[in-house]
């Protein structure tokens, strides 16, 4: 096949220069952090033998030590155990929030982008209205409607991210819809749904998945915020936002009570962002 032989053929290849520290290293750390957090969520008892709910009053407000690596709180509960058992609540909440935003938002965006016309105008104006309301205010309104609780807080946070998902997925769908290969697919007799499933969705959802990973991080923060404000899980449920909120009176005397759970939250959020960046690169 002469078209092949005309390609630039085996050019001399020099060995690669000494490699810099690879960007993959940070990705490996990020994945490890997320893996540990997930393990905490599913199998918390493997990581601590302490009880997260019942405390030993005699051991209240102890600084971090070998027995209590994160120290203890005002009622003598082991803080590490509460962080580990809290992972389940916080991560499940974040997952629910992302799922709500991803499913509802993407459905709206794909609908608007692929159908176009009046439907697109109507959907996108509703999305504009959603974006006009500050996220926290919207989340609080939804919670007031649904009632307090971990799940409801998560749904509320998910509702606030619907607009972002809708906008992104619509722009991606519109980009792909205008491409030559979509026209070629219609031109070869493809029906609307066939072309949507074969070409439009696979080529437009990469960026949406990256956004989902990014939103996972911010959902943890948002749920913690709601927990801190008292709209999330009721005490004494261990939940990351609530942990920090409960300890705010002791900031001056017992730094570990707010700092260490805060570090855990920050680490998980950063890790989620790093993974999001990797997904974006891989699908770009």
């Amino acid at each position: 096949m002469s078209a092949l032989t005309l390609l630039p053929a085996g050019a001399a290849e020099a060995p690669a220069r000494a490699a810099r520290p690879k960007p993959r290293a940070t990705l490996v750390v990020a994945v490890l952090v997320l893996a540990v957090a997930l393990a905490w969520a599913f199998l918390p008892w493997l990581f601590t033998s302490q009880d997260p709910i019942a405390g030993v009053a005699a051991e209240a407000l102890q600084a971090p030590s070998a027995a209590h690596p994160f120290g203890t709180d005002a009622t003598g509960r082991d803080l590490l155990a509460r962080v580990i058992f809290g992972a389940g609540n916080s991560l499940a909440g974040a997952a629910i929030a992302v799922l709500v935003g991803l499913v509802v938002g993407t459905a709206l965006g794909v609908l608007a982008g692929s159908v176009g016309g009046l439907v697109e105008d109507a959907v996108m104006r509703v999305v504009d209205v959603l974006l006009a309301i500050p996220g926290l205010l919207l989340a609080l309104s939804v919670i007031v409607l649904l009632g307090f609780g971990v799940t409801n807080a998560a749904i509320a946070v998910g509702v606030t991210s619907i607009a972002v998902f809708a906008r992104l997925s619509r722009s991606q769908v519109v980009r792909v819809r205008r491409s030559d290969y979509v026209e070629a697919a219609f031109g070869s007799g493809g029906t609307f749904l066939a072309v949507l499933g074969r070409h439009v969705l696979p080529n437009s959802l990469g960026a949406v998945l990256a956004l989902a990973a990014l939103q996972f991080g911010s959902a943890i923060l948002a749920i913690s915020t709601l927990g801190f404000l008292g709209y999330g899980a009721p005490p004494p449920t261990p939940e990351w936002g609530l942990l920090i909120a409960e300890s705010r009176d002791y900031v001056a005397t017992s730094w570990w009570l707010t700092t260490l759970p805060g570090v855990v939250v920050a680490a998980v959020v950063l890790a989620a962002n790093r993974v999001a960046a990797a997904i974006r690169e891989a699908t770009a």
Partner: peptide
């Protein structure tokens, strides 16, 4: 229109465009 209801005409006439790279789905 690309997505017209009556597709039967597509079996009669086909288009090959200038840029074959753009007209092929990169993932398929």
């Amino acid at each position: 229109s690309p997505w017209r209801r009556d597709r039967s005409i597509r079996r009669l006439v086909q288009l090959v465009s200038q840029n074959p790279y753009a007209s092929l789905d990169p993932r398929r």
